[in-house]
């Protein structure tokens, strides 16, 4: 299994291996699930209370479906670990983080200093997402 290189949570990482979305439906005790790009994240919504880890796979970084999957889960109130795995690269970290990912298990280890710089790059954001950062318009109008 690929190692989780970056993690932005205080709780203990879940130990269970993640199962596919298909088998998750059958295994009523599974607490970790892995979403592939073509999977519909919304099928997990009725079961969020028993999930502690969702892995979202990025087989190639250019396939952006996982960003929507992550936001959908967070918008539905999912509070467990959301891990990006696969072709996860430095210059996508900030976007992934904004969509709700809080741990990263890249196929190739990332240069730690470059990753940190990339995550800290943008002082502000234009669009609100589930990450709680106040968008620029909220600051402009005293809503933040």
């Amino acid at each position: 299994m690929v190692e989780t290189q970056l993690r932005f949570r205080d709780d203990e990482p879940a130990g269970d291996p993640a199962v596919t979305v298909d088998s998750f439906g059958e295994q009523t005790n599974a607490a970790a699930v892995r979403i592939e790009p073509g999977d519909d994240a919304r099928v997990l919504l009725p079961h969020l209370d028993r999930i502690t880890l969702v892995e979202v796979n990025f087989p190639v970084f250019g396939d952006g479906r996982g960003y929507s999957a992550a936001r959908i889960l967070r918008e539905a109130g999912y509070a467990g670990e959301l891990r990006a795995v696969g072709d996860v690269l430095i210059d996508q970290l900030a976007f992934l983080r904004r969509c709700g990912f809080d741990s990263f298990a890249p196929d190739q280890p990332l240069n730690a200093a470059d990753a940190e710089a990339a995550l800290a790059r943008y002082p502000e954001v234009y669009s609100p997402t589930v990450d709680g950062r106040a968008p620029i318009w909220a600051k402009r109008h005293g809503l933040a």
Partner: peptide, 13 residues
């Protein structure tokens, strides 16, 4: 323009 600039979900359409 502002909404779409660095939109985190829609940068790999």
């Amino acid at each position: 323009r502002q909404w779409s600039t660095f939109h985190p979900e829609f940068s790999f359409l």
